[in-house]
């Protein structure tokens, strides 16, 4: 079957024709357009954080957590940028979405935008691999259709970044017109950019977008909506995950040895039918030289250090 073949090629990091990529993007868009801004998902489910183009580590993630054939997944966004295989990672997830639409939920991260991907590597990766930006444009079209959040068993709220001062109920998220480039401010922007922190009220974010929010904001949001947990990604956590505010919020990070230099481990969070939390920790794939899957292609630009 054509899709199975495409999946195999993507796993091997092989080149796909522009037409094939267009086809995948169009099919995913047709699926995503039917989903709401906030998708409802049932347990058991495995929650995954940032991937950032680390294809080989994404394959490890599936391997360590059961695989999409047997397991349901929620991905919290940031599929692209920084790593060397943004395109393959994103397309693989889209192919899984087409192949197993009920088993995979994709939420938009702050990197899934035209503006950010032009700065952080995905655009350049496509130019390098195709010599033109068509494939990047197809992918950006898909970005605009990704959900903004998911709710597991009506008890766990999944989002890429965090809360927004403009959002107190889920209905307010449902009212957003999401099919657009992520704005620089407002509810949609905040959901993708905000961070939890030790603050007693909404505060300015050092990232230049979104807000910092503290335990008060989290408690209120959980209470108002009848939730027990906010599961989000967006921030590098050296230990792979970090619970805050008496377990009312967790950050899940799934890109081990981020940018091939940070030395962190990665995690995914499995939620069972009793809403028990089980973390699986995994490490980066070791670079291999010469034959086969060299993790860092030899002709890549230099990794970033101050020299």
């Amino acid at each position: 079957m054509e899709l199975e073949k495409t999946i195999r090629l993507l796993k091997e990091g092989k080149h796909l024709s522009e037409e094939r990529v267009y086809d995948i993007c169009l099919k995913s868009q047709e699926l995503l357009i039917t989903e709401g801004n906030v998708t409802h998902v049932d347990t058991p489910v495995t929650i995954c954080g940032d991937i950032h183009g680390q294809l080989h580590d994404l394959l490890t993630l599936f391997e360590k957590s059961g695989g999409v054939e047997k397991t349901r997944y929620v991905f919290l966004g940031d599929f692209v940028d920084r790593g060397f295989y943004s395109l393959e990672s994103f397309l693989l997830l889209l192919c899984y979405k087409i192949r197993y639409p009920d088993r995979i939920t994709l939420i938009r991260g702050n990197h899934e935008t035209r503006q950010i991907t032009k700065v952080y590597g995905f655009y350049d990766e496509v130019m390098r691999k195709y010599g033109n930006s068509n494939v990047w444009r197809y992918c950006c079209e898909v970005f605009d259709y990704l959900s903004l959040g998911a709710i597991i068993n009506n008890r766990i709220f999944c989002v890429h970044g965090g809360l927004s001062p403009d959002v107190s109920t889920i209905n307010e998220i449902k009212a957003i017109d999401r099919k657009q480039e992520v704005p620089h401010e407002g509810a949609m922007c905040d959901l993708l950019w905000s961070d939890p922190d030790d603050v007693d009220k909404w505060s300015l974010s050092p990232r230049g977008a979104g807000f910092l929010f503290g335990s008060n904001e989290v408690e209120e949001f959980l209470h108002t909506n009848g939730f027990e947990l906010i599961a989000r990604a967006h921030q590098l956590v050296m230990e792979g995950y970090k619970e805050m505010f008496d377990g009312g919020l967790v950050t899940v990070w799934s890109a081990p040895n981020y940018c091939y230099r940070c030395g962190n481990v990665a995690a995914v969070l499995k939620i069972d039918d009793q809403l028990e939390r089980n973390y699986t920790i995994f490490d980066a794939v070791q670079p291999q030289d010469g034959v086969g899957n060299a993790i860092i292609p030899t002709k890549q630009p230099q990794m970033d250090y101050f020299l």
Binding site: D81, N110, H111, Q115, I116, V119, Y120, D195, P206, R207, G208, A209, Q235, L236, V237, M238, Y258, C259, C262, F306
Partner: peptide
């Protein structure tokens, strides 16, 4: 000055910046 720097480009990862600067 931090506010000025913030306004130049979106910084996608504060934790990464911190991690790197801790090692210089």
């Amino acid at each position: 000055e931090m506010a000025r720097l913030r306004s130049l480009q979106f910084l996608d990862e504060i934790e990464e910046l911190k991690l790197m600067q801790l090692h210089y």
